[in-house]
Write a protein that binds this DNA or RNA. Structure first.
Lengths: 361, 361
DNA sequence: ATTCGTGGTCGAATCGATTCGATCGAATCG
DNA sequence: CGATTCGATCGAATCGATTCGACCACGAAT
């Protein structure tokens, strides 16, 4: 059996060569076009023919049309990219991200689209090589600009959730600044004058690039590449222009604890702390308790998100995370359908919990 | 301007037709093959030529080779499917799933593969239509069988994490049964004789299909479609063959609370509860506290997973979730490289916390 | 001076399906 | 009974790139 196998011996023996539509058609005694019709059921095919084709497919162990070929021919892959900046483990620890993702899935899933997770950790390479029909960037830091440019050249719809406005990108916005200002006003009305901020990550500190965590400086604030954090910072500054701050390295309870310890153990301890997420706020509350301070008697804590974290009833700004996701999903669908852009913007509402109270001295 | 636009007016006017490699090559004055080489840098191309091609690409606003065409030609799409049974919001609330996913990303991401999230909620349709190079099924219930069959016909590597053995599927296993038995023995040594189980979802109750939650019956246990839950059940039965149980509708704290209330408010209240996840265990502890019971004095609680849930120091079985993910990632890579199957199996270790103690009456 | 590489480029086949227009037979209608 | 239409099927072009073998020219070796 070695004589005639000289042309392509390895390939032929190891791989029995997956059958393709043409092979199925041949076995069924019909043309490839008819076989295609039989599978896609997008044209008139007699029942007898369809049965023959299906039988031939079964005989050859054919799994149906190759998705790769389909996506080339149709120009659609059925895949929506989701660009997330952090590592997954970090991004998914924040319930807001999950809620939003779930909103996206709810809408896109119903339309038969699957989600491709793209972590931005590598270079800007990955993002451009996947066969996506559309892409959503979440918490897009400014350094994604070049990747976005590539995507735009490719002509696919780009949706950005809470990002700086860019031409050709459909925005899904949240009133981060106004909402934070609202929360700050609440603190102001309670009489708080010494207020500190715990900020979400701002990107690398220009002065001392290190852990991504540390006391907030004017330089750092100015060079921030994080849109949402900056907006919330501005909202706080609208009421407390000179508030001190601490930048966390992630939206995590532990980070909030670090920040809280840092801010509350100083002699000029603030009477209230504006945390940019509920997870951070919980950390701050813990730090306060660890330092023997009572919340809200000794220190008020304001959160952001409206995550239901059990054991706590934070005063916070409740954002419609799932709706944000749904809106992103609808924006994708609109983009794919060639309809006009479908931007959206959402507002957060202040929910008073038991972590803020009148200043007490 | 209407006269000569009769042939294909709509398409030509709305879409400026994205340029393709051929167009770039033409403008650069080279052949398509050379242009391809210039982009892929997988062959000898003079620097001058490459520069010409790149310049032409820039002039035409060409974004690089179309990923769809590439994946057809190369037979690879760079996409790994991850099949998750629940809704994302539910699956991602369990830290174990996230940890594992992160392990997968760590390995596959380094190899330039992106993850396609596939929720199993719809029919078995979706799963087969995406252009994937490999697929990982997580917590695969038996009803995925047909989808797996399709995938296998397609000839792509299939990795299953904690699933019933199937031919052609590479298993990544955890010692669910043995580990649970170990935990049960720990309770046994502490003198517990009245023990109840809080089980992870088992699939629909054959007798009364409802919420997916309720008292564990022999019929339900026998008809379970959930592999992991069944294994852990068996491990508990190895020590306590007649233990009563309650089936939760998800791995959630709230579900644990429901189950705990149900089991602990009865007159024949157990002295210990085996929960099949740490989240469930926390819920049980909360329920106990709500009922005025002390843990572990009045009731011992055993968890599973080794998730670090703050505020609690559960006695639990610590499983290497991230390693499981990494192993799955390596199994994928091996499969894609045509190497022999790379299965793996992991063991959990008992970590004694402060939620179990000697029986006290 | 002739030959032997070899870097650089090109043609053409191929990946696997979809889809438009054409064809052909049969059934319907006038 | 001839013309029309409709349903079923087929051919061929197309989607956009990759890649193998061929080819050409030029410098080096004999």
């Amino acid at each position: 059996m070695g004589a005639r196998a000289t042309s392509k011996p390895v390939k032929a023996s190891t791989q029995p060569q997956r059958p393709n539509l043409a092979a199925v058609a041949a076995l069924a005694g019909v043309s490839a076009s008819t076989a295609s019709l039989a599978f896609s059921s997008a044209g008139p095919v007699s029942d007898a023919t369809r049965a023959k084709v299906l039988a031939a497919a079964a005989a050859l162990d054919y799994a149906g049309p190759d998705p790769r070929a389909q996506s080339l021919r149709r120009g659609r892959s059925g895949i929506v990219g989701v660009v997330i900046e952090d590592r997954l483990s970090e991004a998914f620890r924040d319930p807001m991200n999950i809620a939003m993702l779930d909103g996206i899935v709810e809408v896109t899933g119903a339309a038969g689209l699957a989600l491709l997770l793209i972590t931005d950790t590598g270079g800007a390479v990955d993002i451009a090589v996947a066969p996506m029909d559309a892409v959503v960037v979440i918490g897009c830091s400014t350094r994604l600009d070049q990747s976005v440019a590539t995507l735009r050249r490719r002509g696919i719809p780009i949706i950005a959730v809470e990002a700086a406005p860019m031409t050709g990108v459909v925005p899904i916005d949240l009133d981060n600044r106004e909402a934070t200002r609202l929360g700050a006003q609440h603190l102001d009305e309670l009489g708080h004058r010494q207020v500190a901020i715990v900020s979400l990550p701002l990107g690398p500190d220009p002065l001392e690039p290190g852990l991504g965590r540390g006391r907030l400086t004017a330089e750092w604030e100015a060079s921030s590449s994080a849109f949402t954090a900056t907006q919330r910072l501005l909202g706080a500054r609208d009421v407390y222009p000179d508030a001190k701050g601490f930048v966390a390295a992630g939206s995590l309870v532990e980070e909030g604890e670090v920040a809280g310890r840092e801010l509350l153990s100083r002699p000029d301890r603030p009477t209230a702390i504006i945390a940019q997420s509920d997870l951070l706020a919980v950390g701050v509350v813990r730090a306060a308790e660890a330092l023997g301070l009572l919340v809200p008697q000794d220190v008020s804590v304001l959160g952001f998100d409206g995550a239901r974290i059990d054991g706590y009833e934070l005063t916070t700004l409740v954002q419609p995370a799932v709706d944000k996701g749904r809106a992103a999903g609808r924006a994708i669908l609109a983009g794919l359908a060639g309809e006009p852009d479908l931007p959206a913007s959402f507002t957060s509402v202040l929910r008073i919990g038991n972590t803020t109270g009148p200043v007490h001295r």
